[in-house]
Design a protein around this nucleic acid. Structure first.
Length: 815
RNA sequence: GCCGAAGUGGCGGAAUGGCAUACGCGGCGGUCUCAAAAACCGUUAGGUUCACGCCUGUGUGGGUUCGACUCCCACCUUCGGCACCA
């Protein structure tokens, strides 16, 4: 008999909704658990990635609820952003209408998946009661000097017609549309995330329960280099600072290279024979696209400026070159070149016949500059380095840095890869930046009492570029909050990553209207105990959220350093080994599967097929397997109902076995859940228990022990497949929800077996097995092993050197 | 190049240093049926043997150990991130 999943799922979805089963209330007398999935952009439809993400979260929420925690499991929508604008252009509609419609659709699909969200806490970032607080936080940053305006070369997406943050440029392209990004000179708003570089890096150490690869990616992105800024004297007496992490090689610096954009280049070449050549080289580089310029495999080009400078330690006159492999955007835009100990310098020096000198010798070999085929970049001992000869190069780094500071030829410096966060977007559908430009007072923040600066409605979006708000006269024209004179509003909107940088705090008190959140609510619920989302946010959203949290702590709003205690990055859902995409036409639609199999089967399969953080290759037959399993459990429950527990037959071996297996299963699953949410093995353990129950005779299946095991099965499975378990729980005679029952417990005593199977190894190979009563001592075990016929054959005619006994497991004989 | 992760049956994947391949999918055989589907039962790493068995097997090569998928060393491959970062 199969179960009617459609009826059952509808029934319980309605019931849970009616009784607000997932309502969370701040209650400091109870232990809390905050589980959060990265909220979605409301595209209107949920895809397999969403299903996986939210199913993982829902299992955790339901599991923790059954364990007695006060669980906060909210959901909302990251509702600002470009797709709504694009849809509006395409359909000639309004981004707001479109977005709200999509949210509605998505909620319905989430509802049908049986997700236990506290919908009373729903948050949509496009609503003014939310984005008001984006503006409030921005103003706080403005006040602290962390929000500032700067004219600079920025990343520009020619397709989206807006600027992008560094984090939004992926392999030279726009993170949304992959169009190659170009440089543009613009004055824009930035957030000074670089003020937090050190803390963002250091506090990664606190995050013990984050995946190592996310930690590694953040560390890479922040990119700390510790070194020295060394002062080289130019011929005209001016100082040229150069940044290096290899100050130990300074005695081997035989020339200096400037980035083509370096401001001193023009002055160096003035009236020199090289002027023309260098100018045309600079011109050429300026016209190269970023992709070409930054590709690592292209040949390094450059030319001599005709000018020299002084190596501050050797006092040698060394040539100054210009080359495209030196970037203006890092360090000082100038490097000291040590061709013997840096591969790039080596190739460049060989190409242009520049001098080379070995200053680090490896152990055992003697390097000579002429014979080298590549730079020597490993550890060694200093040579040709005056007072530092004979010092190990790692030690020399510190000593030379010290000496340079003392003799004022350099200064210990740290450089970061992380750049300030560009947040201005030339788009409509986002939070207005709450700033006013006054001819008299300059840049003035909107007063707090005037928040929110509302996004004007019914704005025409043409998609032709420029901030749409620029054309909204009654928005732009305003009065200066300081002097009252006529002034203009900022018309750019904020990057949408601002919206998601603090939404987890808003969930703690979504209705608060005096502040972004209530301190006492946040104190109780935060930090998020378990955060779940895709690896694509390893840097972007997770770095920004960490930054916001640290800032809010600094202004006294929070008392913790990191927002997310544990992070689980779920793997992607693939089809035939490939990413699902519209262009490939290989999308598996959850909607169809919901209709065919129901939510429980879909949830079960997606959790069972692979560990949550691994990639999951979609399989239709796997869905059949999940369905088959649920039907098997269903039939067990039906049998229990029919039998009504009559026969109190004596405990058969099968029943004893079932009881032990039940305790084992409870232990195994509890361990799997607590030890990192290993859902796939947890589910396989329930399958094993069910298999044991199926081995019982039909008489045995009516025994209380069997019934107890069936009840445990339903409980253990409930977080995974909530609807059918709730129904089965009711059919087994309970009036309360299965989620109000306690998570099953196990007893170590029940796990005990009467006898243990000993594996017998001879010289490391398994040769036999014997069953030994538990109370047997080592001598007894030894005697039994040696009297085992099979074992005797393997040790016949040999001298037994050693017998090792691992209690209850194994005997190892060495002959 | 640097950083990180991972290599186990036909497939997805299990294994605190102790029976490698749990659980599931697929395959094969059977029960039921007029038949099929569903369901249920059995079987399923490779080689070898009539058979009991035996041998070989966790990317490759070494090492530690009574015993290694697991620990150590070297290497290969795949995937992901960063990438002319000085």
């Amino acid at each position: 008999m199969e179960f009617d999943f459609k009826k059952i799922e509808e029934k319980w979805q309605k019931a849970w909704n009616k009784e607000k089963a997932a309502r969370a209330v701040t209650d400091p007398s109870r232990p809390k658990y905050y589980v959060l999935e990265m909220f979605p952009y409301p595209s209107g439809r949920i895809h397999m990635g969403h299903v996986r993400n939210y199913t993982i979260g829902d299992v955790i929420a339901r599991y923790k609820t059954m364990q007695g925690f006060n669980v906060l499991h909210p959901m909302g929508f990251d509702a600002f952003g470009q797709p709504a604008e694009n849809a509006a252009i395409k359909n000639n509609s309004d981004p707001e209408d479109w977005t709200l419609q999509c949210i509605d659709w998505m909620k319905k699909e989430m509802f049908r998946m049986g997700y236990s969200y506290d919908w009373e806490r729903e948050v949509s970032t496009c609503l003014s009661d939310y984005y008001k607080w984006n503006q409030w936080i921005f103003l706080k940053m403005l006040e602290k000097g962390l929000a500032y305006r700067k004219a600079s070369s920025v990343n520009w997406c020619p397709s989206c017609l807006t600027t992008l943050a560094n984090e939004e440029v992926v392999q030279g392209g726009c993170w949304r549309c992959h169009t190659p990004v170009v440089d543009k000179e613009l004055e824009q708003w930035y957030l000074k995330i670089t003020d937090y570089s050190e803390r963002l890096l250091e506090d990664l150490d606190i995050l013990k329960n984050w995946p190592v690869r996310v930690l590694a990616m953040q560390k890479n992105w922040i990119g700390k280099s510790t070194g020295v800024e060394i002062y080289f004297k130019l011929e005209d007496g001016r100082t040229l600072p150069v940044f290096t992490t290899r100050q130990d090689t300074i005695f081997g610096a035989t020339y200096v290279v400037l980035a083509p954009e370096h401001p001193v280049v023009k002055e160096l070449i003035r009236n020199k024979p090289q002027e023309k050549e260098v100018s045309s080289f600079i011109e050429k580089v300026a016209h190269e696209s970023r992709q070409v310029r930054e590709a690592a495999d292209v040949k390094k080009e450059g030319c001599f400026t005709g000018s020299y400078c002084l190596n501050p330690v050797t006092k040698e006159k060394i040539p100054v070159w210009v080359a495209d492999y030196v970037l203006m955007g890092y360090g000082t835009g100038a490097i000291m070149a040590v061709p013997t100990h840096d591969q790039r310098d080596f190739l460049f020096a060989k190409e242009h016949g520049l001098p080379m000198r070995v200053v680090i010798q490896p152990k055992g070999v003697t390097l000579s500059a002429d014979a080298m085929e590549s730079a020597f970049e490993e550890e060694g001992v200093l040579v040709n380095s005056n007072a530092f000869n004979g010092v190990g190069n790692e030690e020399a780094k510190e000593k030379i840095a010290q000496w340079m500071e003392e003799s004022r030829i350099g200064k210990k410096t740290i450089h970061w890869r992380l750049r300030d966060w560009l947040i201005s977007r030339q788009r409509y559908w986002g939070t207005p930046i709450p700033v006013i430009y006054c001819d008299t007072c300059g840049v003035v923040g909107v007063s707090e009492k005037d928040l929110p600066v509302r996004l004007p409605e019914k704005v025409k979006i043409t998609g032709e570029g420029g901030s749409p708000l620029n054309h909204v006269k009654n928005f732009v024209e305003t009065k200066c909050p300081k002097c009252g004179k006529k002034a203009r509003r900022e018309t750019d909107t904020m990057a949408t990553f601002i919206d998601s940088s603090w939404y987890f705090l808003r969930f703690c008190s979504p209705d608060e209207d005096q502040a972004p959140f209530k301190k006492e609510d946040v104190k109780y619920w935060m930090p998020v105990d378990q955060y779940i989302g895709g690896i694509e946010h390893a840097v972007l959203h997770l770095l920004y959220s960490r930054f916001f949290t640290k800032f809010l702590k600094d202004i006294g709003m929070l008392d913790f350093k990191e927002p997310f205690d544990r992070l689980l990055t779920q793997g992607m859902v693939l089809k035939d080994g490939e990413v699902m995409s519209k262009s490939k036409g290989n999308i598996v639609d959850p909607d169809g599967l919901l209709k065919e199999y129901g939510a429980d089967t879909l949830r079960l399969f997606i959790l069972f097929a692979a560990p949550p953080e691994a990639e999951l290759d979609w399989s239709d037959t796997g869905m059949d397997g999940a369905w088959r399993f649920l039907s098997r459990v269903w039939r067990l429950v039906e049998t229990c109902q029919e039998k009504k527990v009559t026969a109190l037959a004596s405990e058969s071996a099968g029943l004893k076995n079932v009881r032990r297996k039940m305790h084992e299963t409870v232990k195994k699953i509890t361990c799997d859940m607590d030890g990192g949410f290993k859902f796939n093995t947890a589910i396989s353990a329930v399958m094993e228990l069910v298999n044991e129950l199926y081995k019982l005779s039909s008489e045995e299946q009516g025994h209380p022990i069997a019934l107890e095991a069936v009840q445990a099965t339903v409980c253990l499975l409930a977080p995974f497949t909530p609807h059918v378990c709730e129904e089965m729980w009711q059919r087994l005679g309970s009036k309360e929800s299965v989620f109000k029952s306690h998570w099953p417990t196990f007893s170590e005593k029940e796990l005990q077996e009467d006898a243990a199977i000993y594996v017998i190894q001879v010289n490391g190979k398994v040769r036999s097995k014997i069953i030994v009563k538990l109370d047997a001592d080592d001598e007894e075990v030894k005697r039994l092993v040696l009297s085992d016929v099979k074992t005797q054959e393997w040790i016949k005619g040999a001298v037994v050197k050693k017998i090792l006994i691992v209690p209850k497991k194994l005997v190892s004989i060495v002959v």
